[in-house]
């Protein structure tokens, strides 16, 4: 198995000095290609901080982060932007769609930043929207869609430029149970299609569907196991 994410002795300290918070405390973690990982832990344990680190949204206070074997822990802002654009698809709890843009336009955004021409962009965005079953909602704005539909637009946006990693932070946190099931189904399918999927959740029902479960507590990895209950479906 090829190494994709390698986190080596990473610390993240907020407010260094007085009342500092050690959100990540000497974390070591390796995730290979085409894995399905759930990260669980209590509120405040450092899950989102870890995800921001993996997603190149933040840089560690100390330690190293290698993505595809390349050190990305001390990159400039623009280099990080490029890495995010090419390597990572984000799925957030709050969907994070741009309200003034239609579903199609939201999905096209990462392609615009990659410099892909209009026609190819349209094609890719359409493929992505179709794959999450939203062919009929292309020209709707976020406020004209249900939460589940919005999250599916966000997923389409995350996969449109075909990044190898999908990072989902509480992807079902704002959804009812039937929408949640649907989203989890899509996420599992994306994993089966060959992507690496990392899901942060405190819903143990969701975690149980992942192949590997990492538990963190107080900024440290407490356990890292292969899910005995995992089943393909």
């Amino acid at each position: 198995m090829k190494k994709l994410v390698e986190i080596k002795d990473v610390c993240k300290i907020y407010n260094p000095g007085e009342n500092e918070v050690r959100a990540l405390n000497h974390v070591n973690l390796t995730i290979g290609e085409n894995e399905f990982v759930a990260i669980i832990g209590q509120s405040g344990s450092g899950k989102s901080t870890l995800m921001n680190m993996i997603g190149c949204l933040d840089i560690p206070t100390s330690g190293k982060y290698y993505l595809h074997g390349k050190d990305v822990s001390h990159m400039s802002d623009d280099e990080q932007s490029d890495i995010r654009n090419e390597e990572i698809g984000f799925i957030f709890q709050g969907f994070n769609l741009i309200q003034s843009l239609t579903a199609m336009e939201n999905v096209e955004l990462p392609l615009i930043y990659r410099g892909i021409g209009k026609r190819e962009r349209d094609r890719l965005a359409e493929v992505a929207l179709n794959s999450v079953g939203l062919e009929k909602r292309k020209n709707h704005r976020p406020n004209e869609m249900s939460g589940g539909q919005q999250q599916r637009v966000a997923i389409a946006r995350a996969i449109a430029q075909a990044p190898p990693i999908l990072l989902a932070d509480e992807p079902t946190g704002n959804l009812d149970s039937s929408s949640s099931k649907e989203i989890i189904k899509i996420i599992k399918r994306l994993y089966r299609e060959g992507r690496t999927v990392i899901v942060i959740t405190h819903d143990s029902g969701i975690a149980k569907q992942a192949k590997r479960i990492i538990t963190i507590s107080d900024g440290e990895i407490q356990s890292d196991i292969i899910n005995p209950d995992y089943k393909e479906d």
Binding site: L97, Y113, R157
Partner: peptide
């Protein structure tokens, strides 16, 4: 601000 955050998270550079 949030829109800017979203755009940056999906790869917008400073210049964009």
């Amino acid at each position: 601000t949030r829109e800017i955050g979203i755009r940056k998270s999906i790869g917008a550079r400073t210049g964009a």
